[in-house]
């Protein structure tokens, strides 16, 4: 069955027609063309499809598109600002070699972001606990953990400078929430 849903995607309000059985992953990749979010196992075991819905990291391959009605969704595409500067977590993955083939990276970064947004000072155990559902088959876990730790330090520093909101494009501001997009896809 087709229905129309409205939600906030990376800060922009959108509405689109969906089928009941579509997953959020299908909606993002196949209908909206946001292919940064990856499909690995399709069963919630690998974490490659991780996105953030209302501040919570979820497997978009198991999340029904219909369930994002009225919610805020963040994907990897929402992290870098349009001028090209990367989010501190993305920059940290580049700087610390947290990327090998790159397939798990968007999911890793979204899991890390859900954690660091709440607690940039999360210790390594907390990082491991939060990232346990993200599998890297290149097995570059040490560099990934280093990247998240360094990003956390940077984000804590930014927060300390009171600049977090300005430097974090992934945080949805009131202004962007109020933006009227009214864009209808399909």
């Amino acid at each position: 069955m087709t229905k129309t849903i409205s939600f906030i995607l990376n800060g922009d309000e959108i509405s689109c027609d969906i089928q009941d059985h579509w997953t959020l992953l299908h909606l993002l990749r196949e209908e909206l063309g946001l292919i940064g979010t990856k499909e690995g196992c399709g069963n919630g075991e690998c974490g490659a499809c991780t996105v953030i819905v209302d501040q919570l990291a979820v497997n978009s391959c198991l999340y029904l598109a219909a369930d994002v009605q009225g919610k805020q969704v963040q994907t990897i595409e929402g992290l870098a600002v349009h001028t090209g500067s990367l989010h501190p977590i993305q920059q940290s993955f580049v700087d610390n070699g947290g990327i090998q083939c790159g397939f798990c990276t968007p999911g890793m970064i979204m899991s890390a972001k859900a954690l660091l947004d709440k607690d940039p000072k999360a210790d390594q155990e907390a990082v491991k606990h939060a990232l346990a559902g993200n599998i890297c088959r290149c097995t570059g876990y040490v560099q990934i953990l280093d990247s998240v730790a360094a990003a956390g330090r940077q984000m804590a520093k930014n927060q300390g400078e009171g600049a977090a909101a300005a430097k974090d494009p992934g945080t949805i501001t009131q202004q962007s929430m109020n933006k009227k997009a009214g864009e209808v896809i399909t």
Binding site: G44, G47, T50, L56, N59, Y63, S111, H129, A132, G133
Partner: peptide
């Protein structure tokens, strides 16, 4: 509950 699946699974 803190070790069921992954955080993504536990959030759902």
């Amino acid at each position: 509950v803190s070790n069921i699946g992954s955080l993504q699974v536990r959030n759902m």
